[in-house]
């Protein structure tokens, strides 16, 4: 089916072209944003976990949100989807403000998330998990639930849609198994398929590859890029750079709650700020060296320098360079 292949590349092509002229800087404006967040802050006690000035997500693209552990990615996700409340800030989805909206309304608006720790509903069968995802079910109202003839035909339609999705995610053989009996990777697939039952415009995947057998990651990646082919926008959290490079059209890097950098995967990954955030500014030194420096006091100088007050920075760096060569 050459047509399929053509449209497959066309969608990616379209997303990349649309983003081509976007400046590679934090908070860059996108031509057609589906999600816009402004000045979102979340404190946990004294810790400022999320401090995002401005970020936009381009419609029809796959945007990766990356960053080291503790960068605030998941917290930011929770804020956007209503699972956590920010101390300040505002954001709009499709031009509609979602600030203070409870999670279920966020999902109904067309913004559906998955979770880092997969939430397959263990004691429901796979097909029941899927059916649960469908929205606007008549049989979900208390009084109508007792009158099966009022919801039977809708249930059949939902089941058919669920079976199609299961087939696409290769879970159709597990249809009547308990979700709790699935493997970790299968649960991820189920959760993604279930999210699609909501018919979202924006799919937010929190670490879709975490804890998945490497043999399965490739197929998971394909499923993620397929979402774009079906006209959905994807925002996903990941900390494995290689995964991101393969499928993302745009990458947003978070570190210590802030947006550090933005851009297409190739550009972002060579950005020194990103490398520092990921590996630490001292990533090419061993702990023993750092300890030695700490004892001699040079590290303190260096830290002070990095914080941007002392011009003595170059000296400190040179000196550490010497010790390194000496070994």
């Amino acid at each position: 089916m050459p047509d399929d292949n053509l449209s497959l590349t066309a969608k990616r092509e379209a997303a990349v072209t649309a983003l081509a002229d976007v400046p590679r800087e934090p908070g860059a404006k996108k031509p057609d944003p589906i999600l816009v967040a402004d000045d979102v802050k979340r404190h946990f006690g004294g810790l400022l976990a999320v401090d995002v000035d401005h970020v936009e997500v381009q419609r029809g693209s796959i945007t990766a949100l990356i960053g080291p552990n503790g960068a605030g990615k998941t917290t930011f996700f929770n804020l956007l989807t209503g699972f956590d409340r920010p101390n300040s800030g505002s954001w709009t989805f499709n031009g509609r403000s979602l600030h203070g909206t409870p999670p279920f309304k966020v999902a109904r608006a067309g913004m559906v998330r998955t979770f880092q720790l997969t939430k397959a509903l263990s004691k429901l069968t796979v097909i029941e998990n899927m059916r649960l995802g469908a929205t606007q079910q008549k049989g979900e109202s208390f009084w109508r639930a007792m009158l099966p003839f009022t919801w039977r035909s809708q249930e059949d339609a939902i089941t058919q849609r669920a079976e199609e999705l299961l087939a696409r995610f290769k879970l159709d053989t597990k249809r009547d198994d308990f979700a709790g009996s699935l493997s970790g990777g299968q649960r991820k697939l189920l959760e993604m398929a279930r999210a699609l039952m909501v018919e979202p415009e924006l799919v937010m995947l929190d670490e879709p590859m975490a804890g998945v057998n490497p043999a399965l990651t490739q197929s998971l990646l394909e499923h993620v890029s397929n979402l774009r082919e079906q006209g959905m926008t994807v925002l996903f959290v990941e900390h494995d750079m290689d995964m991101v490079r393969d499928i993302a059209d745009w990458v947003v890097v978070m570190g210590q709650g802030k947006i550090l950098a933005e851009g297409p995967p190739e550009t972002v990954m060579s950005d020194p700020r990103v490398v520092d955030a990921y590996l630490g500014a001292h990533h090419d030194q061993s702990l023993a060296e750092l300890e030695e420096q700490l004892e001699t006091g040079t590290l303190a100088e260096e830290v002070a320098a990095e914080l941007g007050q002392e011009p003595a920075e170059t000296v400190a760096v040179e000196r550490t360079g010497e010790t390194k060569d000496g070994r």
């Binding site: 699972f83 279920f104 999902a107 939430k119 979900e140 639930a145 099966p148």
Partner: peptide, 26 residues
């Protein structure tokens, strides 16, 4: 009647994990 309906399905989902059910718009 209730527990074999979509209404009952939502309840069982809540028992398993209410955040997952929330994320599906319930």
């Amino acid at each position: 009647l209730l527990m074999r309906s979509p209404w009952g399905r939502v309840l069982k989902g809540i028992r398993e994990d209410e955040d997952a059910v929330r994320s599906l718009g319930k």
